[in-house]
């Protein structure tokens, strides 16, 4: 009887996980749109140098290190959860959450640095519009990170309640995937902004 039917793919993936992938796809499209707007934005074809006429704040680079570190911690947190090492998972979740908050703070410091350069969200010189784009791109990313922080918090609380273990991995794995997504996103965005000069 089994031979008669093609392989039934039903319930291959947990719906929430699959939906997350699709959400990440949609998010990527949003960033693609904003970034391509940034790429094509020069107001005057004659002035090629009107793109980014300033150095990116160093804090954005620090953020990248933070993101890499948090990716490592959440990777091990997931691994520990899979191995039922509940207390290690608990700690690693907490550290990741902390790193997430540090990331947001670092981005905030980056914005402060931009402001101190005289580059605010609203500018009255045509070449400074790239600063507005940098604000939009980073703020959208921070919004995504905040979503990740909410997930991490839930995950951490659940792990404190000993609810994250081998048999209850859905939340952990969603958080893990999503956190890698926002981390990767920031690395790509930073590299893009860095080389866009």
């Amino acid at each position: 009887m089994n031979k008669k039917f093609p392989k039934d793919p039903a319930f291959a993936v947990a719906p929430s996980k699959f939906n997350l992938w699709l959400f990440m796809l949609a998010s990527s499209m949003l960033f693609a749109a904003v970034v391509s707007a940034f790429i094509v934005h020069h107001p005057d074809a004659e002035k090629k140098d009107a793109w980014t006429a300033f150095d990116l704040p160093i804090y954005f680079l620090y953020s990248m290190f933070v993101v890499v570190a948090s990716s490592v911690t959440i990777y091990y947190a997931f691994k520990m959860a899979k191995k039922d090492e509940i207390s290690a998972n608990k700690w690693l979740n907490g550290i990741t959450l902390l790193l997430g908050i540090v990331f947001c703070y670092s981005q905030y410091m980056g914005w402060n640095q931009l402001v101190s350069l005289g580059l605010t969200f609203v500018n009255s010189r045509p070449e400074d519009i790239s600063a507005s784009y940098v604000y939009v791109i980073t703020a959208l990313h921070v919004a995504h990170v905040l979503g990740g922080i909410v997930l991490l918090t839930i995950c951490w609380i659940q792990s404190l309640r000993l609810n994250v273990h081998k048999k209850n991995l859905t939340l952990m794995s969603i958080t893990h995937t999503y956190w890698h997504f926002v981390g990767l996103l920031w690395i790509l965005l930073y590299l893009f902004l860095y080389f866009a000069k």
Binding site: M29, L30, V122, N123, I129, V136
Partner: peptide
């Protein structure tokens, strides 16, 4: 829809910034 609506969201976002914050993404 999943691939194209986020782009509209981006477009609308810029428009909202231009209207409410005084940025110049679309204005010159």
């Amino acid at each position: 829809g999943v691939l194209s609506f986020p782009v509209l969201l981006g477009a609308a976002l810029f428009l909202i910034f231009d209207r409410s914050f005084g940025t110049s993404f679309y204005l010159s």
